[in-house]
Amino acid sequence: MKLLRFRFQDETKFGVIEGNEVVVLEEDFLLSIKRSSSRVSFDEIELLSPVSPSKFICVGLNYMDHANEMKEKLPDEPVLFLKPSTAINHPNYPIYYPPQTKELHYEAELAVVIGKTAKNVMIEDAKNYILGYTCGNDVTARDLQRKDIQWTRSKSFDSFAPIGPWIETEIDPSSLDIKLLLNDEIKQRSNTSNLIFKPDFLVSFISSIMTLLPGDVIMTGTPSGVGPMKVGDSVSVVIENIGTLTNKIE
């Protein structure tokens, strides 16, 4: 099932994709999935980020090849950092190139969407707290990341957390092809089977530190091949059985 948040006739709505139509839900799918009798054509809607998270919890160095690429030691535990909710960005919306950086990078990632409040979750129960999965781009000011002791500034500019286009609730995340295209040229390509720390483990580990709220997003890390974007570029994250998240740089 593909769950989405969208704008139609100047109203924000929630829906389920069926063919080329969207069945409008009676309320936010984080509350319940109640179909209304209303349907709209997919071509008539404007996609929004599928959720508005209270926080993005991001995992660094979670693909072996990317750790090697960044000349970093493989972590014994997940390396965590946060993006603020104000970094949220929508499908097809611009990523803004801030004047503070000269090195804006893309990072294609599988994003986990939390479905219900999670605290001290056991690994074997983690699936019960996951609503589904979507595409994410952990946009990074790489020169600021190298300069700062911690990564907050480099990861937190407005528009630096595009997610979408929708949430897929019925997939196994253990072996999904993931790639990033810059102006239709493949720059990153891997498979989620190469994740060091898997989604279920991450939900358990993170929930032992902080309470995860419905709609929170865990960005699971990026494979090798990260690189620069410039104004005018188009960047797309493509994940098997989920979809494509595209944004342009302005």
Rank of each mutant, 00 (worst) to 15 (best):
N247Y: 10
L104T: 02
V40K: 07
I239E: 03
V121G: 01
V23I: 15
V51W: 11
Y63I: 06
F29L: 10
G164I: 05
E109I: 00
E185I: 14
F42Q: 10
F56K: 07
D43Y: 13
P173V: 12
E18F: 00
N20L: 11
L144V: 03
T152S: 15
S236R: 13
Y63K: 03
E77D: 06
T211S: 06
I123N: 07
V237D: 03
L3Y: 03
P162G: 12
E21G: 05
R153Y: 07
R5E: 08
M70A: 09
M219T: 02
N120Q: 08
I171L: 08
G227Y: 08
D143R: 10
Y129A: 00
P84D: 05
D76N: 14
I163L: 14
A87G: 13
L4K: 13
L74C: 01
M64H: 06
N191D: 12
T211F: 01
I114T: 06
V113P: 05
V203N: 04
Q145M: 13
S234A: 09
L176H: 12
S204L: 02
I123L: 12
P162A: 14
I249W: 01
M70P: 02
E44K: 15
C58M: 04
F205T: 05
S38C: 01
L82T: 14
F14L: 10
N183S: 01
E44R: 14
R153F: 07
S234E: 09
F81H: 08
V235Q: 01
S52Y: 13
L176F: 11
V238S: 14
V139H: 05
H66P: 07
K116W: 11
